[in-house]
Structures are given as C-alpha cells and as structure tokens.
Design a protein around this nucleic acid. Structure first.
Lengths: 104, 104
DNA sequence: CAAACATATCGATACGTGTTCATATGTATC
DNA sequence: GATACATATGAACACGTATCGATATGTTTG
C-alpha cells in the first residue's frame, strides 16, 4: 500500500501541512536538537538561544502535528520526536539535501 | 559522508528553505503533477484549475530552489522535477505521511 | 512586420504566522 | 498555603507571501 505516486488533493494538503511545519529554521533546529535525546523546554531555549515562550509556541505546533511528544518529569517537560517515522524522515531529508549540495 | 545527525545552523536554514517551498498545497500539487511526466505551464494551470499567473509564480520559486527544471519546446515550456533526489524525496515523504495516517 | 499564442514579470492586496511581552497554569519545596 | 521554578497561553505587532489582474517578453505563423 501507500504506493500512489500522486496523492489526492486532501492528502496533498496534509502533506503540505507537515512540510510547512518543517519549513521554519527555528522549528527544525528544535527538532534536530530533540533528535539525539529528549530535551526539556528550558534546555532547548538555552542551548539554541531562544526565548522560552518561543520554544513553547513552536513545540505546541509540533505537538499538534504529532511530530513531537512531551512527557512531564517533575517540573520539567521533556520533548522527543513522536516516533521512528518522523526521525527517519528528518534524517533522510537531511541526507537528501546534503547530497544535493554536493552536486554542482 | 552526509551522516551528521545534527546539521549546522546554516544547513538547517537551507533545509528549512526547501521544506518551506514544499509546504504549500498549490506547489505540492504542481510538483506531484510534474512527477509523472514533464508538463507545460498551461496544462498545469488547466489541470489543477489554477491561474496561469499563479502557476508561473510558483514555478519560478521551485526553479530558484532547483526543485524543477523547465525546457522550452516551441511556444511551451515543459517542467519536470530537477533530478532523482527530488522525486525520491517527494515519494518517500508521501509514503511516510501515508503510513503515519494508518497509525491511530 | 503583424497577429496569435504561451509564458513570465510587475504592482497591489489580503492573509497567515513567527516573534515578543506579559500573564496564567502547573509542580515541587519550605 | 506561600514561594520559587518550569512551562503554557494570550494579545499584539511586523513581516513575509500566496494570490490576482494587468502587462511585458518571447515564439511561431500568416
């Protein structure tokens, strides 16, 4: 299944929604940062030099799209990529772009 | 090479730029339409029910990012995906999203 | 060269959204 | 319960950009 080369217009919209979320540098940095291991919101903000509010806003969007999931641990909430699909997707795309950059 | 799991901030920006372009439903529809075979601008507009101007605008952006390439043939210009990487990327992502949709 | 067709560009507008500041919610410690 | 810490939410602003209409560029045919 899932072989259809041309998705329906609805699927296209959903796919575009995912791409749109990935299409922001700040969100991408957050995602890649959480790719290694679950990260607390404060750590993300500090490490990436972003305001806590901004990080929380972006995490909310990423959560809504099921790209990340957060789990509370005492005061902190640790975020990680939602599942293997998402992380694989990110790594694959990063590879694709790197390879593209090699070609002239 | 191209194994780095965490791209540099610059790479992240470039990657985000690509995602951003893919993050528009209209552009995605254009890309998937050109995925099967090279398509003339007018055909794209007619088949997807878009204004010729809008299609041309989007193609300009996609061209700038080397996601598509157009070749003149008499009066018409036929657009196709730039290379195998781009088309593979699209199909992979479509599969990912389809599989995600299956999970509940 | 003029006319017709196909595509590209320009100007203007409407809308979405990334960011910030301030505030609220939630959680542990005294 | 009050205080301090961590995160989430809300309002407001600035900016980018998707879209449209009109026009320009380019290409073939008479």
């Amino acid at each position: 299944m899932s072989k259809a080369p041309v998705p329906s217009q609805l699927d296209t919209t959903i796919l575009a929604e995912t791409f749109r979320l990935l299409g922001d540098p700040t969100r991408l940095r957050i995602l890649f940062f959480c790719l290694e291991s679950p990260r607390a919101v404060g750590d993300i903000a500090a490490s990436l030099d972003l305001s806590q509010s901004l990080v929380s806003h972006h995490l909310r969007l990423l959560r809504g799209a099921r790209l990340v999931r957060g789990t509370r641990q005492a005061k902190q909430v640790f975020y990680e990529l939602a599942d293997r699909h998402v992380s694989d997707m990110l790594v694959d795309m990063a590879d694709h772009v790197c390879e593209e950059a090699d070609e002239t």
